[in-house]
Nucleic acid binder design. Structure first.
Length: 596
RNA sequence: GGUCCCGUAGCUCAGUUGGAUAGAGCAACAGCCUUCUAAGCUGUGGGUCGCGCGUUCGAAUCGCGCCGGGAUCACCA
């Protein structure tokens, strides 16, 4: 890579000029700011102690050395302590002809190492998916694509939370007031039908609490003593005892939820290689804890409960087994982590889970290490922020959620309206038009979510529909469609930019070079996105590329260019831009239309 | 209260291994379609980077202290 060459030669320059060795890492190099002439900039302030000269002189001397020793450097300029290096047009031309038509550009070859296990989605079967899940699903799917592009094998797993008190609440409400409704009889999607009863339970439960409080009970007691919650707990006990009626209803209702989820996943374009169910894994981890107790890694208390003492690490004591010997959430996660390790022997395990569980995952990792499970060192929590509404946090129980299916419907409808207003659906058949509306609507939604740094909370205002102009998915899709249209015309006109390389008889114009430079940065964006587990790196990259390409497109004629060499060069740039946009969007799980 | 995260333009967001004059989009205003798709392009206005102190040749970026917002700290999951 050219960056490494420059850094290495820079060290050589310092050695040669000032007789002192420096490491490449100690030299500051960055991309030159766009208002300033140059491609890479070396900041020489840190070298002044060695050179014992002014910033300007130091930069000049190093610049001279680099220019004489690196053929790719055409010229340089110095502003204060900044040495701006200009690479030759030949360098950019070589890059374009070497990588422009290579199918694997930007992606690493598969390394054939142990896979990365990536858990995401992990829904509860008591309610439908909402906007928070959408963020989770999109992040998880995109991260899997990014890791694959970095040469990793990825196993996408989903751990479905299909048991527990919250499921029993939906079941109880259905038993009491369901009246035998089914998805078929109501025409409702299964997960939505179940969600309806979850909300209903909460409503009735709150009524009971109010009544109890009115009789003089404290709110806290009322929450524990309300008949409905006692009944729900009883159902949980019967479920654990394999009571036939309860298990049968549980299976039926979970089946409805799965049918609903499958539809939503399919539409959202996400999938999984393996699905775990908590009903099958919730008893795991107990043995792990007992072993830890025996070895002395964990502590038992008089009442029989078992704890991990993390006070030395700055955390608290954490309960792992209750005094009655039953498990808690953490116990189960310890067990599933080990199960997953045994199943895949992965090089890393990534959990895409909201930042409200930061503490949980911190503890999970520490306890596993305490238990001597070295694989825990390779556990990563991709912690993402909440999606907030203008009125605050979403709450399923209170029905203040943006439903995933509804939102996708709205995006489709907006895409249809906008496209028809622009008259762009006129020549399409109905199926073609629907496919396009879906591509654009989902593209807008996915990009809206993924362009934001995962770790930050983000705001979604349902009153304002997601934009299709500016820094948006449709903007990028549009750029791609425009490129395809141009390339199709060029092919028809007999231009052969793939096999015939432009000769660069003319110097590159600024916009030509700017666009090629963005294309050059794709490889780095993929690496950084993978290393930081951050799809927004790709989203911001591809926006920047599309923006620069649009300037190029607006300012420079391609097919209208009379100089054939120029036309071929611009077609090569155009073609590569289209391909890199497509590949970038693929990393985000966003489709790109041939026309729109 | 302890721990962690966040605070950048009216709004939504970029920008941190410390670098040059802090950037986009939306919204507002003014231009550009007889020429490759105007979901586009160009321009104008808009900032004490929450506040203060410190480290440094240099701080949105690092440290300390405040202010404001959020999460978490259950024999819940």
């Amino acid at each position: 890579m050219i960056e490494e060459i420059i850094l290495a030669k820079c060290c050589e320059a310092v050695q040669h000029l000032y007789g002192q060795e420096v490491s490449p890492g100690s030299i500051g190099m960055e991309k030159t700011k766009k208002e300033i002439t140059g491609d890479f900039t070396i900041v020489v302030f840190s070298l002044l102690k060695i050179s014992r000269k002014s910033p300007e002189d130091t930069a000049m001397e190093i610049g001279d050395y680099l220019k004489n020793n690196i053929p790719e450097i055409a010229e340089f300029n110095v502003i204060k302590g900044f040495l701006n290096l200009v690479l030759s047009d030949r360098f950019w031309g070589d890059f374009l002809s070497r990588e422009g038509t290579r199918t694997g550009y930007g992606f690493r070859e598969n390394r054939h190492e142990a896979p990365v296990v990536l858990e995401y989605s992990s829904p509860n079967t008591n309610k439908p998916l909402h906007l928070g899940h959408i963020r989770n699903n999109l992040l998880g799917f995109s991260l899997a694509e990014i890791l694959k592009a970095n040469g990793h094998d990825v196993v996408k797993v989903n751990l479905v939370n299909d048991r527990g008190i919250h499921i029993c609440k939906s079941m109880l409400a259905y038993m009491n007031w369901g009246d035998g409704e089914t998805p078929q009889s109501t025409g409702m999607k299964g997960d939505h039908l179940i969600g309806k009863y979850y909300v209903l339970f909460d409503k009735k439960y709150k009524e009971e609490i109010r009544e109890l409080v009115a009789t003089g009970m404290t709110a806290e007691d009322a929450e524990k003593k309300a008949p409905l919650i006692l009944e729900a707990q009883d159902i949980l006990r019967r479920w654990e005892a394999r009571d036939e009626a309860v298990v049968s209803l549980w299976k039926t209702m979970n089946g409805w939820a799965y049918e609903g989820f499958d539809q939503t996943y399919l539409r959202l374009g996400v999938d999984f290689d393996k699905v775990y169910h908590e009903s099958e894994t919730y008893l795991l981890g107990k043995q792990l804890v007992m072993d830890g107790l025996k070895s002395g890694a964990l502590v038992g208390k008089e009442d029989g409960s078992v704890w991990a003492d993390l006070r030395e690490e700055g955390l608290d004591e954490k309960l792992l087994l209750r005094s009655d010997g039953t498990s808690v959430y953490m116990t189960q996660d310890l067990g599933t982590a080990e199960l997953r390790n045994d199943d895949f022997h992965p090089s890393a395990m990534i959990y895409v889970v909201g930042n409200e569980q930061n503490y949980h995952f911190d503890v999970l990792k520490r306890v596993l290490l305490k238990l001597g499970k070295d694989f825990a060192a390779n556990i990563h929590h991709l912690s993402y922020g909440m999606v907030e509404l203008p009125m605050g946090k979403m709450k399923s129980r209170e029905g203040t959620v943006v439903d995933a299916d509804d939102l996708m419907d709205e995006m489709f409808a907006t895409a249809e309206t906008t496209t028809r207003e622009l008259g762009k659906a006129d020549e399409l058949s109905q199926p073609e038009a629907n496919k396009l509306f879906n591509t654009i609507g989902l593209g807008a939604l996915k990009y809206f979510i993924l362009k934001v740094d995962p770790k930050k909370n983000m705001l979604f205002d349902p009153a304002e529909s997601i934009d299709f102009n500016g820094n948006t998915g449709p903007f990028i899709q549009y750029t791609y469609a425009r490129i395809q249209s141009l390339l199709a015309r060029a092919g028809g006109a007999g231009y052969d930019w793939k096999s015939r390389r432009a000769d660069l008889l003319n110097p590159l114009l600024p916009l030509e070079k700017e666009t090629i430079k963005r294309l050059f940065l794709f490889e780095e964006a993929v690496v950084v996105a993978g290393k930081e587990m951050n799809p927004s790196v790709i989203a911001n990259y591809v926006y920047d590329l599309a923006k620069v390409y649009n300037q190029f497109y607006q300012e420079l004629p391609v097919l209208k260019e009379e100089n054939v060499e120029k036309a071929l060069l611009r077609l090569a740039v155009t073609s590569m831009a289209g391909e890199v946009i497509r590949r970038s969007m693929k990393l985000l799980g966003i489709e790109v239309p041939a026309r729109m």
